[in-house]
């Protein structure tokens, strides 16, 4: 959910972009990270963990904990919380290990 009004801040979100997530087309803004864009679109689960395939999402926000690893444009283990969303980006939930074949 995006914050529409704020007593202190104004948000420079950039321009509108469209990207796909697991085949669905979603809208975002160019200054948003992939993780923020997905949260804004109501998507909390970003990956399923290696091992037990547990749902994981945004946690640290600084690309440190690797909980937000997703497949972006075919490359796995991309940290969604520090990757800016781009027009036409293909984002997929990563289930367990990534593959070199995309």
């Amino acid at each position: 959910m995006r914050i529409e009004r704020h007593p202190i801040l104004t948000f420079d979100r950039g321009c509108r972009v469209r990207f796909t997530f697991d085949g669905r087309e979603l809208e975002a803004f160019s200054h948003e990270t992939v993780a923020a864009a997905l949260l804004a679109n109501g998507v909390p689960v970003l990956r399923h963990s290696v091992g037990e395939l547990r749902p994981r999402g945004f946690f640290c926000g600084i690309g440190r904990c690797a909980s937000c690893s997703m497949i972006v444009n075919g490359i796995p283990d991309v940290r969604a919380c520090v990757t800016l969303v781009e027009e036409g980006m293909v984002v997929e939930t990563q289930h367990g290990l990534g593959s070199i074949h995309g």
């Binding site: 914050i3 801040l9 547990r54 945004f58 926000g61 909980s67």
Partner: peptide, 25 residues
């Protein structure tokens, strides 16, 4: 503790104050 929706405060603040996205209601 590893469920989506559990945040570190720093990341929580980033979403709220930089991205303008509400991490939770």
């Amino acid at each position: 503790c590893d469920l989506p929706g559990v945040y570190g405060a720093g990341g929580f603040q980033t979403l709220m104050n930089l991205d303008g996205v509400l991490p939770g209601t």
